[in-house]
Computed example of a mutant assay.
Amino acid sequence: MQKEPLFDLAILQAPGQLPRPAPAAPKSKPSGRKARTVHASVPLAPWTTVPDELIRDTDWVVVSSSGGKDSQAMLSYVVRRARALGMLHKVVVVHADLGRVEWAGTRELAERQARLAGVPRFEVVQAKGADLLDRVEIRHGKLKAKAEEEARARGEDPSTAKVAPAWPSSSARWCTPDAKRGPIRTLYTRLTAELAHLGRPVRILECIGQRAAESRQRAKLAEVEINQQASNGKRHITTWRPIHGWSDRRVWREIARSRLPYHPAYDWGNRRLSCVFCVLGCTSDLVNGARRVPELAASYARMEITVGADFKAGLSMREIIRRAQVLEAAEGPAARPPAGTAMAAIVGQAVTAKYRRRQEAVYGLPV
Score class of each variant (00 low, 15 high):
93 V>C: 13
94 V>Y: 00
204 I>Q: 09
260 L>N: 08
168 P>W: 03
358 R>L: 13
130 A>M: 03
57 D>I: 09
106 T>E: 03
48 T>S: 15
7 F>N: 08
62 V>Q: 05
352 T>E: 01
99 G>S: 06
73 A>C: 08
212 A>Q: 12
245 G>A: 10
6 L>I: 05
84 A>F: 02
164 A>Q: 14
4 E>W: 06
312 K>D: 11
44 L>T: 12
12 L>H: 12
360 E>F: 02
218 R>Y: 00
73 A>G: 07
26 P>R: 10
283 T>F: 06
300 Y>L: 15
332 G>M: 09
261 P>V: 02
81 R>M: 06
147 A>L: 03
52 D>P: 01
170 S>G: 13
353 A>T: 15
138 I>G: 00
339 A>S: 03
21 P>F: 02
145 A>G: 14
129 G>Q: 04
153 A>L: 13
248 D>S: 13
244 H>K: 13
102 E>Y: 01
196 A>Y: 03
126 Q>E: 14
86 G>S: 04
62 V>A: 03
111 E>P: 06
16 G>K: 09
156 E>R: 03
304 E>K: 08
99 G>C: 04
82 A>F: 02
91 V>A: 05
233 G>C: 05
213 A>S: 14
293 V>A: 05
174 W>V: 04
219 A>P: 06
213 A>L: 08
131 D>G: 14
163 V>A: 07
267 D>W: 00
66 S>Q: 03
312 K>F: 07
79 V>L: 01
215 S>A: 11
17 Q>I: 15
202 V>K: 07
173 R>T: 00
35 A>C: 00
320 I>T: 14
